[in-house]
Write a protein that binds this DNA or RNA. Structure first.
Length: 883
RNA sequence: GGGCGAGUAGCUCAGUUGGUUAGAGCGGCGGCUUUACACGCCGUAGGUCCGGGGUUCGAGUCCCUGCUCGCCCACCA
């Protein structure tokens, strides 16, 4: 590399570095997999963001987690494909463009016509997609932009066509008249999933339906929707309900309308609810629709597609459903037909997109026989061919799949995949073919018309893992990268999307679309509330990246993505990760500043500090790799955070900073400092790609000849050195013991104290002696002595026991008043004794000794001995010293 | 009405198959211009692991039960 710079600037400037580094990665096509089939492929298809507007925090989290996964896999040598794309998002996008159109030109889509309107949506899409892709790049997404896909691209269109054709041929797609959810604002049918129940407080009205031939007698029905009485076809009572036995077979007059309708009996009616008499409106209630079919009742539709009362509603024609309700209630009241009104809280369906109350509506729509497709989709998860993480979601998946209902896939919209069905104007034949038909296969007429509707967006999304790879063509990509490895997405679209992908892709290819589904949590504000524009608590990821840098945001996400928990983002929450970036930068500055010329792999493994560090590095590598394999991002990030900050910076760098190490033994530690830093950068690179790559650029010329993004990910190959590790830990404990004592005794940091490290065992002391100047420097000790003796010098020192027969004694004269210290020591002894009692009672307990595993028993014994030794030595000291 | 999840330090949360004296970050307190970093360093306080039963040698962890919160699903008008 030609652009190496010898030393790091004092400050890291993400705003300058991030775009520069991203460009560099693109230049060398770091994110595009190659054609090498000897390399194992790894594939992750990006959940395509909607082209409705800009990315939010949820997208940033998605991009971060997926980038962590694929960057690591790439570094591990996999032929890695992360395929990006965007979704046309039918209703959502059409709504946005309609709104804009109305605001800027005061026009509706009908003013423009279908063709012209679609042109506008495409313009919007081009603009919006550019914004979104720019944002993904800012986050650092290492996706393969050469394969960028859009759900309305030619490829996906062909895939949709093929899939529709096959399912139609197999009888799994069919057209049917049925009751569906209708959004009167969007003026389209919706699937069950696009309707969200909201708890609303309304009223329950009781209305008199008088007998046809005897106005003195009446059935009183209870309803929450009086306006639908215009379409009533019957009143139903329970066959065994004695209260209404006299009404069986009779007829009643529909209030206000005066139409005569029958009284029917059906066991569906709940005798306990309301009055036990139920008005049946087959055209406006799903249950009534079923009952209507059963009893062959007429379905009287009284509303148009805007949910306004139509001709069938007589005098109420033209009123909105809300106005009609008001008027009908007051008219009933005026006629004395309103028996009672009470408050009633119940669940009412609303359009997921526009929050308008949905209207049940009977209409002709296209459906997928989802129950049939679900069979295989259930099996592949049961058989663990597909693993869903976190595991709790498997149950949710099964529950939904097992109770699945027909999926309404037609939408009365313009923006989307037009339904590939034609009808013959002559003979009304339905024509479904792979290519656009020109003649009717039935009557040879040439006047054909295509179905006006488009498909549910999720139909094309459901084919995403295969349509992006070229299916139905047997492309090289499909062969190499399918089935994909991971589907990483939010749990909120498990049914919408993941379930549909499994159903459709398994059906189309006979293979699973992905091996693992990882469902990430939702991003929320500091109070755990969903971010929404109306609440004003939305945080813009770009704003955060602008002030803190992308790596800070990414590290924050990694540290806070716990299984099954929300990620909370608010002002100030990212400070910790921002500080971490800064810490890493400065540690690197220190290391590269002191050891600018380390050339080869040359770690001195005779130096115990090196071994101590390598030992922990090995454990960290192992844990980090394991955690990432299992998608425990928080754990991987946490281990790296602590290894870098606590072990490498606070301990290792501080130790080698002492004159003994930095000057006398510099050659022994410098390779370690540099090489472990390299490992840290590589380990952190998937999480914080920018700052690590930037630091990497500054390493000595001979070392790093390629970008960090293309380097290999560290595995646990640094060796284990338990003995040296324990030794250096002892030294650290000595330093900490002295520091603690200094703290509690209030000794000024500049004042030196005198200390003795003591042990009855010379062999325990021996390896510690070479660290004497280190301890002196780090603990502020002057003339550290090592003494082999059985008894401490009681007149001179106060004790801080360390462990395994080693203690540190400080000169009393340095410490001033130590009475408080004695008190503390007595408390400590008390705690130790309690712990010892617990341990001993365990060991005395024969069932524990019999039943517990040997290593647990040994552990308790060892612990007991250590506690005892510590307690004994403190107690002894107290006995001898307390006046 | 069903299902799922959560309740651990002041706050936000970890705690892997039950097994040392229950941890982190932030915040608090005391101190520090110690040769990279005050976005820092050193030290320190703080917890009946929601309540109640049970299983076990041993429970924050498993079972039952109660309470409180959150989410998802559901056609009782």
């Amino acid at each position: 590399m030609s652009d190496l710079i010898p030393s790091l600037p004092a400050q890291y400037d993400p705003k300058e570095a991030e775009p520069r580094l991203y460009k560099k990665w693109l230049q060398i096509a770091a994110f595009t997999p190659d054609d090498d089939d000897n390399k194992k492929p790894f594939t992750l298809i990006m959940p395509p963001p909607n082209v409705t507007g800009v990315l939010h925090m949820g997208h940033a989290l998605m991009a971060t987690l997926e980038d962590i996964i694929v960057r690591r896999k790439r570094m591990l040598g996999f032929n890695t494909l992360w395929l990006p794309g965007t979704d046309h998002a039918g209703i959502a996008t059409q709504m946005v463009v309609e709104r804009e159109l109305l605001a800027s030109e005061k026009k509706t889509k009908h003013d423009l016509g279908r063709e012209e309107f679609l042109k506008r949506v495409w313009e919007w899409k081009e603009h919006s997609q550019g914004t979104i892709l720019g944002q993904l790049r800012k986050i650092g997404a290492s996706s393969d932009w050469t394969r960028l896909a859009f759900t309305l691209d030619e490829g996906p269109v062909k895939a949709v066509r093929e899939c529709f054709y096959r399912l139609y041929q197999d009888g799994l797609i069919y057209r049917s008249t049925a009751m569906i959810h209708w959004c009167p604002r969007c003026r389209t049918a919706l699937s069950d999933l696009e309707v969200k129940g909201e708890t609303k407080t309304g009223s329950l009205w009781q209305i008199r339906y008088v007998l046809e031939n005897d106005p003195s007698q009446a059935l009183v029905v209870a309803t929450t929707r009086p306006e639908t009485l215009l379409g009533d076809a019957a009143v139903a009572v329970h066959p065994d309900d004695e209260r209404y036995a006299a009404f069986h077979g009779k007829k009643v007059r529909l209030p206000l309308v005066d139409r005569v309708i029958p009284v029917i009996t059906d066991a569906y009616v709940d005798r306990e609810f309301g009055t036990g008499a139920l008005k049946i409106t087959p055209a406006h209630d799903p249950n009534d629709y079923e009952i209507g079919l059963k009893h062959k009742l007429p379905s009287i539709n009284v509303m148009d597609e805007l949910a306004q009362i139509n001709e069938a509603g007589g005098a109420y024609k033209g009123l909105s459903r809300e106005k009609a309700r008001e008027k009908i209630v007051s008219d009933l009241e005026a006629k004395g037909l309103l028996e009672s009104t009470e408050k009633y809280t119940h669940n009412v369906g609303h359009c997921d997109r526009c929050k308008t109350m949905v209207e049940p509506r009977v209409s002709q729509q296209w459906f997928v026989n989802a129950a049939e497709l679900a069979k295989q989709a259930i099996r592949v998860v049961e058989d663990k061919e597909i693993r869903i993480l976190p595991e709790e979601w498997e149950k949710v998946y099964f529950e939904w799949m097992r109770n699945i209902r027909p999926w309404c896939i037609s939408r009365q919209l313009w923006w989307g995949h037009r339904i590939p069905v034609w009808y013959c104007n002559q003979c009304n034949e339905t024509i479904v073919e792979k290519e656009d038909p020109t003649v009717c296969p039935n009557c040879r007429a040439t006047e054909l018309r295509q179905d006006d509707d488009v498909l549910d967006t999720w139909f094309s999304s459901g084919l995403w893992p295969i349509s992006t790879l070229g299916w139905p063509k047997e492309t090289a990509d499909l062969k190499r990268f399918y089935p994909t490895d991971v589907m990483e997405t939010g749990f909120d679209i498990l049914f919408f999307w993941v379930a549909r992908m499994v159903m459709l892709c398994v059906r189309m290819t006979g293979k699973i679309p992905f091996k693992t589904v990882y469902l990430h949590p939702m991003v929320r504000d500091e109070y755990g509330q969903k971010m929404s524009k109306t609440k004003g608590n939305v945080k813009d990821p770009l704003e955060i990246i602008d002030t803190m840098g992308a790596d800070s945001l990414r590290m924050y996400f990694a540290l806070n993505t716990f299984h099954g928990r929300d990620v909370r983002v608010h002002d100030g929450s990212l400070e910790g990760s921002r500080n971490f970036v800064n810490k890493l930068w400065n540690a690197s500055r220190f290391v590269l500043g002191h050891f600018p010329h380390v050339a080869g792999e040359n770690i001195d493994r005779t130096n115990p500090i090196n071994c101590w560090l390598l030992h922990q590095l090995t454990l960290t590598k192992r844990e980090v790799n394991k955690a990432l394999e299992e998608y425990r991002f928080y754990e991987a990030a946490g281990k790296l955070y602590h290894f870098t900050w606590d072990t490498y910076c606070s301990r290792f760098l501080e130790m080698i900073k002492t004159p003994e190490e930095l000057e006398t033994r510099k050659l022994e530690v410098e390779s370690t400092a540099v090489e472990v830093l390299e490992d840290i950068l590589a380990l952190l690179h998937p999480i914080m790609p920018f700052v690590t790559e930037e630091i990497w650029r500054h390493f000595p010329l001979e070392r790093n000849t390629q970008l960090l993004a293309l380097s290999s990910y560290p595995m646990d190959n640094s060796g284990e050195y338990p003995e040296q590790f324990a030794q250096v830990e002892r030294v650290i404990e000595i330093v900490e013991a002295v520091r603690t004592q200094r703290g509690v005794s209030g000794i000024s940091p500049s004042a030196k104290v005198h200390a003795v490290v003591y042990s009855p065992s010379a062999s325990a002391l021996e390896p510690l002696q070479r660290f004497s100047s280190l301890v002196e420097k780090m603990a502020g000790v002057e003339g550290l002595a090592f003494e082999t003796r059985a008894e401490p010098d009681k007149k001179l020192h106060i004790l801080r026991p360390v462990a395994e027969g080693v203690g540190v004694y400080l000169l009393k004269a340095d410490l001033g008043d130590v009475d408080a210290e004695f008190k503390k020591m007595r408390e400590q002894v008390k705690e130790l004794r309690e712990a010892i009692v617990r341990a001993e009672s365990k060991l005395k307990n024969s069932s524990f000794v019999d039943k517990a595993p040997a290593d647990v028993i040994d552990g308790v014994k060892k612990q007991r001995d250590e506690l005892k030794e510590k307690a004994d030595s403190i107690e002894k000291y107290l006995r001898e010293n307390e006046a």
